[in-house]
């Protein structure tokens, strides 16, 4: 199947189950390897989104909030400072204790000695495509428990 805009739309409607049985049969008869890959990728992305939503709903426990409290000087706050131009508060002895606790918590949760695995912390500033569609996907960094998702720039070229 040659992929132009109408065909893209048709494939998307096929994926969404919006075609009549006759139309479905027509699409299936003309599926190319590229179409199959695209359908597989659409399925995976849908699964990824569903998993992310499920995980979000299932994630209601006290540990992340507690960890966030402990890790007051951690990466998430640094990221917020980057975005909003906030400055760190002056250090005090209690901040030292909190930092020590945060370090212990991070060591417990992140376990860097298990990792030869790259971290991320990517902010996309601009993204332009011509003759292609690009989507940005943030993948959970589990099981390495990184506090930043890994960014994937997914480019699908038109024919």
């Amino acid at each position: 199947m040659k992929m132009g805009k109408p065909e893209d739309e048709r494939l998307q409607r096929y994926f969404d189950g919006e075609l009549t049985p006759e139309e479905r049969a027509q699409v299936e008869a003309g599926l190319s390897e590229d179409d199959r890959l695209r359908l597989a990728a659409l399925g995976e992305v849908r699964g990824l989104v569903a998993n992310a939503l499920t995980a979000e709903a299932a994630d209601i426990d006290l540990w992340p909030a507690l960890e966030k409290k402990l890790a007051g000087g951690g990466k998430a706050e640094a990221k917020a400072r980057r975005r909003w131009g906030l400055r760190a508060h002056p250090a005090s002895w209690s901040a030292g204790l909190v930092s020590a606790a945060a370090a212990a918590a991070l060591l417990f949760f992140v376990q860097p000695w298990h990792s030869g695995h790259p971290q991320n912390g990517c902010d996309i500033e601009s993204l332009e495509t011509v003759g292609a569609v690009a989507s940005v996907i943030h993948m959970d960094d589990a099981p390495h428990n990184g506090d930043e998702a890994t960014t994937v720039i997914w480019t699908t070229e038109d024919d």
Partner: peptide
């Protein structure tokens, strides 16, 4: 096809 600018942690991917 692609022109993107991004900021990344050192060693990040």
């Amino acid at each position: 096809v692609l022109d993107t600018t991004f900021t990344l942690d050192e060693g990040g991917v």
